[in-house]
Amino acid sequence: MKLCEEMDAEGLHKFISDNRKNLSFIREEVPVALRSAVNPFILVLDSLKGFYAGEILGSNGKKDGNLLGLRRTCLMLMESLEQLLADSLSDEQILTSDIKEKAKVIAKEWKPKLDHLDIEASSGNSLESHAFLQLLATFDIASEFDQDEICTLIPAVTRRRQTVDLCRSLGLSHKMPGLINVLLDSGREIEAINLAYAFKLTEQFAPVPLLKSYLKEEGQKRCHKSKLEACLLTEINERELSALKAVIKCIEEHKLEEQYPVDPLQKRILQLEKAKADKRRAAEAAKPQSKRPRATGSVYTPRITSMPDKSFYRAPPERFAYPYDRQYVYAAEAHHPTLMGSAPYTISPPHTTYYGNGYQVQYQTAYLH
């Protein structure tokens, strides 16, 4: 609360980031804390400065966790601020035209970054689109932008729980039939049905026929499965499995069991999961078994028959078949000065300068004192 009283946007970001494990508690406390700010709207606007400070996806293909966390915090602060609009605020805390102008500047900076958004790739869960739409709703500047352009961003956020309230805040309720048709044309029947229920459009968009049509389309993709590559067939099976689970969840959420029994769908899920498990076991069984280690704990390695340049090795690397064939090599002696009065220990040279395996003996020169 002190951070809000001091209008410390950076400190507020750090506090939320450090306490992200208690996010549910933070969500409850932030609206209360914002009320203690001199002007909560200015505080939240200040917190948005680093939203596009970099790219979420790095050159290594990994997401920047810190930037992702910052953007989520920005979104949460805007959502919390919108809750205050329903309550009475002091004259100093109201949303003034000057604050709206500042919010509009930020929105105009963010909008071009969404122009090339891949709606399909976002899977209805785009954080950046949600933040832009929330900015328009929280600071009441939606009228400054073309409504049809705003509508094009809704399919990018339809899987987010705040979508329905966001659409109402942006004054898009009358646009819902068109948006639902867009979702249906994209094969996103589940999201379309959820919106139809939220905006009381189920007579126009009957849920059960849409759900059956959705599963039928997924099933048709398997009709030529014998001609498909194994990897593609696996992907189709996964998609059908996900579709079945999504349909069952939709049926249960909207209490459609009498119109659309789930037992046949659950049986189909069991079939697909069994086939998936069988395939995984078969793949594991087909893997080559690792060689059994010897009793000594070492793993057998084949005898090396071709030798690289012998000058590379200090000692002969040839592996002998029997212990008595091995050439025993002594460790090099440490060269220390001999003790006074004692004779140096010497070894007379052998009769030949070659080992039995053909490598010439190389004697080290005497250590000079």
Score class of each variant (00 low, 15 high):
S129D: 07
S169H: 06
H335R: 01
Q134T: 14
P323N: 09
S17R: 15
H13Q: 08
V44L: 08
F25E: 10
E238Y: 14
T365V: 07
S129Y: 13
P112C: 07
L23Q: 14
D165Y: 01
P155H: 09
A277R: 15
Q327S: 11
Q83F: 08
E149P: 00
Y354N: 10
R292L: 05
L183A: 03
D115Q: 15
Y363I: 02
A142C: 03
L241K: 10
L265W: 08
F312Y: 09
E273C: 02
A86F: 10
F132C: 05
L23W: 15
D140K: 12
I347F: 04
I119H: 13
T296K: 09
E5Y: 11
H130Y: 15
L184P: 01
T296E: 10
N194D: 15
S90Y: 07
P177G: 02
S226A: 08
Q360A: 15
S342I: 11
L339I: 14
R168C: 00
I154C: 08
K267F: 01
M1I: 11
F199A: 05
E318V: 14
M307V: 04
L172A: 03
A282L: 04
A332H: 07
E318Y: 13
K227H: 11
C74F: 06
S123C: 11
Y355F: 05
L166E: 00
S169F: 00
S17K: 14
V262Q: 08
F15K: 09
L114M: 11
H369K: 06
A137Y: 03
P308S: 06
E238Q: 15
K216W: 02
E144T: 02
A366W: 02
I26F: 13
Y363P: 01
D46P: 09
T152N: 12
A107L: 05
V44F: 07
E92R: 13
L43K: 08
N357P: 03
G124H: 14
I42N: 05
T353N: 15
D185P: 05
K291S: 08
S226K: 13
T202W: 04
E318S: 09
Y359I: 05
Y300I: 06
M307E: 06
K63T: 10
A196E: 07
L95Y: 03
E238L: 15
Q364D: 13
D263A: 10
L244P: 09
M78H: 00
